[in-house]
Design a protein around this nucleic acid. Structure first.
Lengths: 108, 108
DNA sequence: ATCGTATATCGCAAATATACGATAAAGGCC
DNA sequence: GGCCTTTATCGTATATTTGCGATATACGAT
């Protein structure tokens, strides 16, 4: 990639791609599921739930946080992660709008 | 990445991640939109519609084909790409099920 | 103060992704 | 046959992602 040409695309396309990127790894999908299941903003139980090292899980959590899908507050040793409900609703709406916007009739 | 540990995740999580990966670049999102707009399985008009070189667009089309979202038949010089309606419906259902499955109540 | 637990971050290695020019392949046309 | 147009692929450069061990950080407990 020589230069970031992301700006040459639609705002909507870039936003959808960014959300898709956040979901583009099974570990991150799994993390979101775990967070949704255990309401109580769990921390390192996520590590136990995944077949990955602690450092790697922390990295995926960082990515989800950067994408805005997850909130995290660090309370010293045991930090507290939690789904960002509003952002997830926005993401759901974006994916829904995208798929509904595609006209699937008349395909080869 | 030492080894592909994708198998250690749920089938559903892996499938969703694969679809998300296909949508994880604005160019590919744009390509799907273009294909949906011009019903007639266009070929290189996609290149004109995007701010990317022909080789790059071809590569993105390959990725979409690998993900199964797009079908392509090569008719010698002018090949014909087209949305795979069934696959897109399945993808939409998968994203819908994922988001609906998340319990967003009781988040921090 | 020291220890232990829980997380984040650093540093590195390997794999993928992204982009593009150059080139090949495959028809249509004269 | 030779030429043009269209598309795929190759080769290459660079950037990003993924993964993990090692280490730092931060707090509670003793």
């Amino acid at each position: 990639m020589t230069v970031s040409r992301t700006q040459q695309f639609t705002e909507a396309d870039a936003a959808l791609a960014a959300w898709a990127k956040a979901l583009a790894h099974p570990a991150r999908v799994a993390i979101l599921r775990v967070l949704a299941a255990r309401k109580t903003c769990i921390c390192g139980e996520i590590v136990d739930a995944l077949p990955l090292a602690q450092a790697t899980v922390s990295q995926h959590l960082k990515a989800l946080k950067a994408a805005g899908l997850v909130q995290g507050t660090i309370d010293g040793p045991r930090s507290c992660y939690c789904l960002d409900a509003a952002a997830l609703r926005r993401a759901r709406a974006a994916f829904g709008a995208f798929f509904d916007g595609l006209d699937l009739d008349g395909c080869c």
